[in-house]
Design a binder for these strands. Sequence first.
DNA 1: CTATAATTGTGTCTTATATACACTATTATA
DNA 2: TATAATAGTGTATATAAGACACAATTATAG
Lengths: 233, 233
Amino acid sequence: MGYYTHSNRILVALDCIIFGFDGEDIKLLLIKRNFEPELGKWSLMGGFLEENEDLETAAQRILYELTGLKNNYLEQLQTFGSINRDPVERTISVVYYALVNSQQQDINAINAHNAYWINLSDKPDLIFDHNRMVEQARQQLRYKAALHAIGFELLPEQFTIPQLQKLYEAIYNRKLDRRNFSRKIISTGLLLSTGQKDSRSATKKGQLYRLDTTNYQRYLNDFVSFFPELTLT
Amino acid sequence: MGYYTHSNRILVALDCIIFGFDGEDIKLLLIKRNFEPELGKWSLMGGFLEENEDLETAAQRILYELTGLKNNYLEQLQTFGSINRDPVERTISVVYYALVNSQQQDINAINAHNAYWINLSDKPDLIFDHNRMVEQARQQLRYKAALHAIGFELLPEQFTIPQLQKLYEAIYNRKLDRRNFSRKIISTGLLLSTGQKDSRSATKKGQLYRLDTTNYQRYLNDFVSFFPELTLT
DNA sequence: CTATAATTGTGTCTTATATACACTATTATA
DNA sequence: TATAATAGTGTATATAAGACACAATTATAG
């Protein structure tokens, strides 16, 4: 293996925006830094790209180190590369965002990293360009959830339609009509009734559904467009 | 300015997928390489990130070097970082895609780079992971054009509705109904009649329109979603 | 100079979907 | 057993999608 004569080799970091949902609010897993630089401030979970590591592998590693979770929804968002974005040394950061079902996490790993689940609406100021990263991820989540029925990744395996509605309401920060939501989501064919009922509910117990993974694949690819006639494959 | 102790500094490249439209087909500006590595093969236009250069600035520079064009639609697509994607040396590539009005290009610059406009449907095999990059860009173009009325970037300043329709048909590779297309596009309020007619047409000359830039800004942000009720701001 | 072929412009009908809204059912708790 | 809270279902109206038909313009051929 040879080398290019070009000399500008720089550090490549990865940062992960980790979204969760507690039934009421969209949450972010953030780190109160007990290390330099920017000790004491809030940031995303990050790390450097290693020598024999693909980008996606590195992002998965960083997510796993923090949460003990594997096989989550994880997608590359964008790469941030302003000259002075990192005051220590020029570093470009490849940013991923993850959707995790926050009930399955490894509490010990999270505590060990001094990380906390924080309501997206209460997000503190973050270091470097991490605020911009989060803002862009939030928008991407709205996109994706609107087009691709992606939101399920944030829910437990079994969920009720009202729970799903609360998730959508949290993502878009607006109220939806219960009756229309229910009709629409059922018409997608994405939900399979489990026959069970939600035991946790304090009043009328809702019907539990789970994703129909057959149809789900289709919905991950399809989307409804500006010209509905142009719905893609 | 200090340094991180981490040692894995690597080359950062940029590659540009340059889309055009000739009135019939979507085109790609590709390079027949007269330099190493992979001399004689086809590739995207690329380059390395310089020391005092932002990512977007570098992408603009590369686009300018090849086409003489500035101020085009240029957007980051994704970063590709597989370990062995470049056989010479580990390099990650931040990929941008550009939409250019291919009538305004600098022919000399293009010839000097041994570049050619090639129908997307006739795309030759490209080096490294450039095939994947183009495929992803093509999908992103479909997304964007469906959601954001972005396609105008590929047309001359003045255009007829049938020309716009041909562009959409090329992007999505399918026929659309003339009458419904016309009604729909007019109802968006994006078009301003210029009062002029298309002189080039061989039969009935179509009415020339141009973008209403006021409404355009809105359409760049808005999109119609999976739940139309959730159309975003 | 008129017929023709090609393309543009506009209207209308039917069907489907969005949206608004009202009543009934279930369950823990007082 | 009444109440408060939430879940489930139905229906009417407005809007948009999608299919389709006819009239208008213009270069070219006869």
